[in-house]
């Protein structure tokens, strides 16, 4: 007979492991990936593959040769970073830009702070924003979905950019909607028939993944729902005050990286608050900032910046939003 093990309680462990959680995120992203492959073809496959492989390779190399620690690529966290980064990129991005983005995401976003669990900012977003600032032209030349390509147009603006451009030219929302650029319906934004980065095209595919994450208890509803609520309320007030200048909340919810950001990036464990109350404050902040940047800022899309900004505030949120002790006495 074996020797008996002596250790303190508890003697059983639950179902969760880092690897399982990360694998669930990968599974949740599958519908969105498949939709992007369908609409953007081989370009999308290339960007996703390149991004994932280079993230994993960079993580391995940095851990092995720079940090000299045991590589932990088995926990799949680098795969998730690679996937999320790729979903933030246009499908026609040159290969070397994807690789640089991965290096920045893993190297600067994660490893300089000590690896998984220690990074203050979402690594994929660090990579994305770096590329957006360093290569703005390539990063904002959005290929049209294969189903919408015409002989004289292979690229086009995103819905958010169309609105931004129109408003800049002094048009009202209604005039923009009647213009020739505005070729899509809300139904298209639901299923992916619009221009944009890989992951921001199909709301339905992303929400399918959201449901999966909730069922598997990987995330709670608090962050995404408070982001959506803040977006609806804030953009709703603006729209109600001046419908000529501010587009309706549904448009904000369905376009750009709103769902991708709220469900998959804002909920990143490492960079989001530890308490449910804190998560709601954090989510509300992201929602407000996103609308602020989208409507008043110079970029058409703002959720990446909003998430990164709120990432920076997370330590403060954690400090002030503590759970209330059982039976707390004032």
């Amino acid at each position: 007979m074996n020797k008996l093990i002596i250790s303190p309680s508890p003697h059983v462990h639950g179902e969760f492991s880092t690897k399982r959680l990360m694998r669930d995120v990968v599974i949740a992203l599958l519908p969105a990936l498949l939709v992007s492959f369908y609409f953007f073809g081989f370009g999308a496959v290339k960007v996703v593959g390149l991004s994932v492989i280079s993230c994993v390779v960079f993580e391995f190399l940095i851990q092995k040769f720079l940090l000299k620690t045991a590589p932990s690529i088995n926990d799949l966290s680098a795969v998730v970073t690679g996937l999320i980064l790729s979903l933030n990129l246009p499908s026609n991005l040159p290969w070397w830009i994807v690789i640089i983005g991965s290096l920045i995401a893993i190297g600067v976003g994660k490893m300089v702070f000590g690896g998984l669990g220690n990074n203050p900012f979402n690594p994929a977003l660090v990579g994305r924003v770096f590329l957006l600032i360093a290569r703005p032209v390539e990063m904002t030349t959005w290929p049209l979905p294969l189903t919408a390509v015409t002989p004289d147009a292979t690229t086009g603006a995103t819905p958010l950019a169309i609105i931004k451009e129109g408003l800049k030219n002094g048009l009202t929302i209604d005039q923009i909607k009647e213009s020739s650029d505005y070729t899509f319906s809300y139904l298209d934004t639901l299923f992916g028939q619009i221009g944009g980065s890989l992951g921001e095209v199909s709301a339905v595919a992303l929400l399918l993944g959201f449901a999966y994450l909730l069922v598997r208890k990987v995330i709670t509803w608090h962050i995404p729902v408070s982001i959506f609520a803040a977006v609806i309320v804030f953009s709703g007030i603006l729209h109600f005050a001046n419908p000529d200048r501010f587009i309706d909340p549904l448009f904000h919810l369905l376009t750009g990286g709103m769902i991708l950001g709220a469900v998959y990036m804002a909920t990143d464990y490492v960079t989001s608050p530890m308490t449910l109350k804190g998560m709601m404050v954090y989510g509300t902040g992201i929602g407000l900032l996103t609308i602020l940047i989208r409507t008043f800022g110079s970029y058409p899309e703002g959720i990446s910046f909003a998430i990164l900004f709120m990432n920076a505030i997370v330590p403060l949120i954690n400090k002030y939003m503590k759970p209330k002790l059982f039976g707390e006495v004032k």
């Binding site: 093990i5 250790s7 003697h11 462990h13 969760f16 492991s17 880092t18 959680l21 932990s72 926990d75 966290s77 690896g115 998984l116 669990g117 220690n118 709670t220 464990y269 490492v270 989001s272 608050p273 530890m274 308490t275 449910l276 503590k322 759970p323 209330k324 002790l325 059982f326």
Partner: peptide, 24 residues
């Protein structure tokens, strides 16, 4: 009976949610 190998805290906040005394 064997415990898994420990790895970095990923700040998932599952322990905060599980604590019946609402500690951290």
């Amino acid at each position: 009976a064997k415990r898994g190998t420990k790895s970095n805290c990923i700040r998932c906040s599952k322990c905060v949610a599980a604590c019946p005394m609402r500690l951290q």
